[in-house]
């Protein structure tokens, strides 16, 4: 078998595997390239809107983690979102607030964290803690409804 064929087949396999790796790592960001360790925080929302598992968690636009689970609290039936936060961001204060935001008017929804001030009197959030200060997703239909309603009552 000629060397040239061996070489070209090897090249073909290499390109194929490179393509698969690119899809797995760069396109899907399957967590293998994620920043390794994470810790969990929880947040209860009245309404999560279109938030999905794997939606990003951002602080000022910087991704600091991903939503890893969404479930209903078994007692009061409010949605509980599990936040996987990269281990390097481990210094959020208890005053941190969390809200569900939308990228653009119709874009995807993500979680925005607003770190509160850090003070000796305020403790930092530990793994497994609940974030108390949450703002639910804005639901476009509700907003429009409110808007129309206030217009109607203004007349």
């Amino acid at each position: 078998m000629s060397k040239k064929i061996e070489l070209l087949v090897g090249l073909f396999a290499a390109i194929g595997i490179a393509a698969l790796l690119m899809l797995a790592l760069k396109v899907a960001d399957s967590g293998i390239s994620g920043n390794g360790n994470t810790y969990q925080l929880y947040a209860k929302f009245d309404n999560i809107g279109g938030l999905k598992v794997r939606s990003p968690i951002k602080v000022g636009g910087v991704v600091v983690g991903r939503v890893s689970d969404i479930s209903l609290d078994s007692e009061d039936y409010t949605p509980v979102v599990t936040l996987d936060i990269y281990a390097e961001y481990n210094n959020f204060s208890e005053a941190t607030s969390v809200s569900i935001l939308t990228a653009g008017l119709l874009g995807e929804q993500y979680i925005g964290l607003l770190p509160g001030f850090i003070d000796v009197s305020v403790e930092t959030l530990k793994p497994g803690d609940f974030i108390e200060d949450t703002k639910p997703a804005l639901i476009l239909e509700e907003l429009i409804g409110q808007f129309l309603f206030s217009q109607g009552s203004g007349d």
Binding site: K26, V27, D29, E108
Partner: peptide
């Protein structure tokens, strides 16, 4: 890239495609 990464899931999209 980041919006793509947020939406594309490895098991659901890539694996199924494969």
């Amino acid at each position: 890239w980041s919006v793509m990464q947020a939406q594309v899931s490895f098991e659901k999209d890539i694996l199924n495609g494969i």
